[in-house]
């Protein structure tokens, strides 16, 4: 069943939270014997930067995001502050840093892999990383901004990777 053994992902989002799904599914796909390619385009290019510490999660315009404290007494940790904080608060300086800090803390507490660790496993598992050449130029990136092991190509190369693949995910 060679058709089941290939997967492609288009990664388009560059916030800290959305950095996880492409790397989680890619690494798990390889673990399950699939050949996996991720095509990073537009904001998804952020996920290939050498320095991922600047990636942030924003609660701005994101009412679905639960906001619970990863520390403190148990009753306090159960409270979801999301509906209690007016969205305008998240337009204030450094609130994204706060939200990102709390999300990282919560992830650590839950035994979720670190972003760089997941990305390194993907590379170790030979996931093919393709950065969209057009958006690299468009956003004024230099190829040195990105980690080693990235190929630079365009949409036609993505379709070439899709050949014979039956999992093609857009994220």
């Amino acid at each position: 069943m060679s058709d089941n053994k290939k997967m492609t992902i288009i990664a388009t989002k560059g916030t800290f939270d959305w950095a996880f799904p492409p790397f989680i599914l890619a690494s798990t796909g390889v673990a399950m014997d699939k050949k996996v390619t991720i095509f990073f385009t537009f904001y998804g290019l952020n996920l290939l930067l050498k320095d991922t510490s600047k990636l942030r999660v924003s609660p701005m315009g994101n009412p679905a995001m639960p906001m619970k404290l990863p520390f403190g007494p148990e009753w306090l940790q159960k409270i979801d502050f999301s509906p209690k904080i007016p969205n305008i608060f998240w337009s204030l300086p450094f609130t994204e840093h706060l939200a990102t800090y709390l999300m990282k803390k919560t992830m650590k507490k839950n035994g979720v892999a670190k972003l760089d660790e997941l990305r390194a496993i993907c590379l170790e598992f030979d996931v093919k990383f393709i950065a969209c050449e057009m958006t690299v130029d468009l956003f004024g990136y230099s190829k040195d901004d990105f980690i080693d092991g990235v190929e630079f190509a365009g949409a036609a190369s993505y379709f070439d990777e899709c050949d014979g693949s039956n999992h093609n995910l857009y994220m």
Partner: peptide
């Protein structure tokens, strides 16, 4: 122990 999805699978594979 203590690891969350997908780490148990990835470590099993390794």
């Amino acid at each position: 122990s203590g690891l969350n999805c997908p780490l148990p699978i990835l470590k099993t594979k390794k």
